[in-house]
Nucleic acid binder design. Structure first.
Lengths: 142, 142
DNA sequence: CTAAACCATAGAGTATACTCTAAGGTCAAG
DNA sequence: CTTGACCTTAGAGTATACTCTATGGTTTAG
């Protein structure tokens, strides 16, 4: 199989050489070395980088991607393990969506309550909310 | 007005002394100093910390909170400026929600396609997707 | 053979929001 | 006056995912 250097792989993959070395430190990719110490990547390198890109797009961390790659390489890999990690990611996504929805709703409510004109912000409902918060409706005005 | 030390404010606010000093470095809060150099916080300190907490909950960064606090303190503050920053936050929240929805949908689709049993993951559609990606449906199998 | 282009390493810098450590000064009680 | 609690500063460490710098070795074209 053809062996390529880090610069070539970098160009082919669009992943910087620095990042390739970083991925190697994290154990995501393990190139062979030439006699002089140069990294030599095999044909699986592009496939691995593709895998990493896909997983990153789904908000897997590099740590998690490392786990998945290890699963992928292992003989004892089970789909169940992958499914479990995926389920966790779905839950995380749902929680974040929920949180962001709450934030969006609140910001929109505040926006509607705001005159939005050039008057002073001293009585701005947005700043007011940020100060007093949604938890304690009526704090003393200090 | 009563002046309190950093330890007292920390206990009253639930914000660590380290964090209070950090906020000061960022210019969010500016206590006076005693002759010996001790920080002395006025009655507005708790109000400011409350403001920071509220804004953080709405995903404003400390930098953005600093801007808002400056607006709040300024005579020329306009509600319009606050409204503009809030609108930006709403857009950001919407974008993140959209992205997470895509991710969630994809993960769920992959989960449904996965047998989820104890068989080998060599043909797992999830790993397969991560490798080949949603963009190029049929890459060479390396 | 030399110069350019490429590769290697270790370690620091980026961004965000803290958190902790070390070394030392201040304050209140007994 | 000493002890302990509290305060000060500068700077390093944490987490994530890179990115850059410095210094020096390798490879390839002319």
């Amino acid at each position: 199989m053809k062996k390529i250097t880090i610069g070539v792989l970098s160009k082919q993959s669009g992943v910087s050489a620095d990042t390739l070395r970083y991925y190697e430190r994290l154990g995501l990719i393990k190139p062979l070395r030439s006699a002089s110490g140069y990294r030599h990547y095999g044909s699986d390198a592009l496939r691995i980088l593709c895998f990493i890109r896909g997983a990153k797009a789904l908000h897997f961390t590099l740590q998690e991607i490392g786990d998945l790659l290890f699963l992928d390489a292992s003989d004892k890999t089970t789909c169940a393990a992958v499914l479990k990690k995926t389920a966790t990611k779905i839950r995380e996504a749902e929680e974040k969506i929920e949180e962001l929805h709450e934030i969006k709703k609140l910001l929109e409510k505040l926006t509607k309550a705001c005159p939005g004109d050039e008057t002073s912000a001293e009585a701005c409902p947005i700043l007011d909310h940020l100060c007093h918060g949604p938890s304690h409706k009526h704090a003393e005005h200090a």
